[in-house]
Design a protein around this nucleic acid. Sequence first.
RNA 1: GCAGAAGUACCCAAGUGGCUCAAGGGGCUCCCCUGCUAAGGGAGUAGUACCUGUGAAAGGUAGCGCGGGUUCAAAUCCCGCCUUCUGCGCCA
Length: 427
Amino acid sequence: MIDIALLRNEPELVRENIRKKFQDHKLPLVDEALALDSRRRALQQEGDTLRAARNTLSKQIGALMKEKKTEEANAVRAQVTANADRLAAIEAETNEVSEKLKAVMMRIPNIISKDCPIGRDDSENVERKRFLEPKVPDFEIPYHLDILEKLAGIDIDSARRTSGQGFYYLTGDVARLHSAVLAYARDFMINKGFTYCIPPFMIRSDVVSGVMSFEEMDGMMYKIEGEDLYLIGTSEHSMIGRFMGQTLDEKQLPLTLTSYSPCFRKEKGAHGIEERGIYRIHQFEKQEMIVICKPEESESWYEKMWNYTVELFVSMGIPVRQLECCSGDLADLKYRSCDVEAWSPRQKKYFEVGSCSNLTDAQARRLNIRYKTEKGSVYAHTLNNTVVAPPRMLIAFLENHLLADGSVEIPEVLRPYMGGQSKIVVK
RNA sequence: GCAGAAGUACCCAAGUGGCUCAAGGGGCUCCCCUGCUAAGGGAGUAGUACCUGUGAAAGGUAGCGCGGGUUCAAAUCCCGCCUUCUGCGCCA
């Protein structure tokens, strides 16, 4: 949600931003918002004036009643009553106009970074940089599910029986590897100065509707029956929700947090659940990082954050690249965003394993997350990024560390988390 | 989960319909007096948001956990919810 003052003062800038995102159908929203805003202000003025009059008259009634001048009091009371209908009408219209304005403002996209490449959709995203050489071995890399089965690391058939499609049992060394990656990622972020946090895995509906749109909610969130609770789709939901409506102290910033949680997603629409594998599933685990900082610091945090993910993958010997989202592929709340993609030697291309976003003050304004300064309170900037999300990350891991004999090598950094084990062998 | 009690500022807390556009105390800030590991006096301190408006100002409205309602008027009365405390119950 952008600042209404920006829209008032520089509507052309807002329109230009909409054009850059190829959302020309949203251009009329600017004038709609301006009209609703001026109507809302007029209503507030009239309402405030009427309320001021009512407050004054009510006070007179009180004084008259004390002097037992009942008749005079009744006369004044009649005056107030005369205005009551008008005030009620104004209040009703104010609510209506405010809600409409909010709905329109929510659809107007955040101003994007001047560094954001202009493009229509994901096909125009821009590769910025590669890390480690993407290699293709001289033997064939099987589909990840086949690798996992050879290692006795997965049982999808049982998961289908107990839970349906989109679930899995990870077993043995592979399950241990999964936990090892998370533990390593956790310590990696703690060493970067982030505070580790385990958040609630369920959140109330008011938090859900604060952190996402209704469409996203419908497509992603599982509701707990008979309770006002939803399973989180990412720990970002509970981590950002933690600060909803809060005014932080300037001294607390930047808040640099890394959180672990399981994530639950319906994955309705899009490409849906994959039948063969663990690429897109209903349940996975994720180490996440979020930063809440002052506006002037968010650009540099953005750079640091995606680089942490790159550094983590490189330390595990997985080639990655940074793919900058173009204007048309950028979600409306985002100022700038990039994906970290891992190399798949089987597909001979990169695929998404993480996503880093700077939302500037758009999310903070929507959720009312501010901090106090000497001059008053201002909206903070919020950023989020995936540290690592196994099991999807395991696909890249297995493909890049697969040996010709079907076993999988464990990189040095993970061995302490695997009891010193250097390989997972075919069972 | 059941029952009872409570939620007012940085903290404690008064307040059952108009005398509270929220008393008092502590703390904090400033000033005075004193003069040196005391003590006393005075002033300020309900954040904040929105609107109108200015050179600076100033004014208005909302705000007593949150959301509704009753009323000319709500911290106060009514309804729903949230949170905390105490006791009982259950449980990793």
